[in-house]
Write a protein that binds this DNA or RNA. Sequence first.
DNA 1: TTCCTTATTGAAAAAGTTTATCAATAAGCA
DNA 2: TGCTTATTGATAAACTTTTTCAATAAGGAA
Lengths: 145, 145
Amino acid sequence: MDWKNTMTRLGYRISEPRKKIMEVLEGAEVALSPQQIHQQLEHKGFDIGLVSVYRTLDLLTSLELVTVVYDPERNPGYVLSSTGHHHHIICQKCHKAMEFSGTDDIEELIHRVEAETSFQVRDHLLQLFGICPECLNTLNDRGDK
Amino acid sequence: MDWKNTMTRLGYRISEPRKKIMEVLEGAEVALSPQQIHQQLEHKGFDIGLVSVYRTLDLLTSLELVTVVYDPERNPGYVLSSTGHHHHIICQKCHKAMEFSGTDDIEELIHRVEAETSFQVRDHLLQLFGICPECLNTLNDRGDK
DNA sequence: TTCCTTATTGAAAAAGTTTATCAATAAGCA
DNA sequence: TGCTTATTGATAAACTTTTTCAATAAGGAA
């Protein structure tokens, strides 16, 4: 419900397409590509242009309401960003994306790298990849590695 | 010189296009997109198909001889990966990419996240963004922020 | 509520990126 | 030097993203 306040406060309108797209993102635990979002909207009977999906995602990303997730085997995906930290762990099997906290841990690393490289660090991208608990279970059941 | 050994050992051939592409990567301190690499080759008078650039980069990446770098404002870029760690810090001004060491630091974080999320972590993507020393200088000279 | 302004959308097209196919070429071993 | 086959280049297709602009609708003002 909060994204509406944010957008209104900044002078953006709460349009029907934007609402629908946010609903999809809110219902997803996987990072979705623009195409995937568009398809889900179609299935639900909402005829929203793919172009609007792109535009809306760009806007939401710039407002930090959603976060881009990079999955080497897929197209860039978009997930809702909850407040504060913006790190995700992504399942390599089912591609589920889950947030984890951990800004503190990186501070130390950042300071060290700043000392080492003389860069002034302003942002960072941290993602973990692995197998989620559910997929671990199905793997074990089947005896796969 | 070492990438040749690696490729030969694995049964890949050292072709002219591959040599030229590696030369470009070795001479770059910025992460380059396939298109940029292709253009540099053209300027140098080497008529290598863009398709081959894609194929070669895919191969080099799979062999971990080069690393993909994500820059939110650009297309994915490719940089030579030196041995061991594969993390980069990227200048938001000139887009220079520099490696930094730091696999150890993340171990702790990974263990914590594994405990928190029950994921089995298998890989990670860590990149820092900031301003490189050279760009910091020019910024200071100009009095920009 | 109704009207008005203008941000937002949709459609169509263009631009750009990546992948697939296959005959021609050349790398590297015998 | 010749042979085998991985690799390349050209072409085309598939796919993704951006641009443009008239039509629509969000939301403040009356």
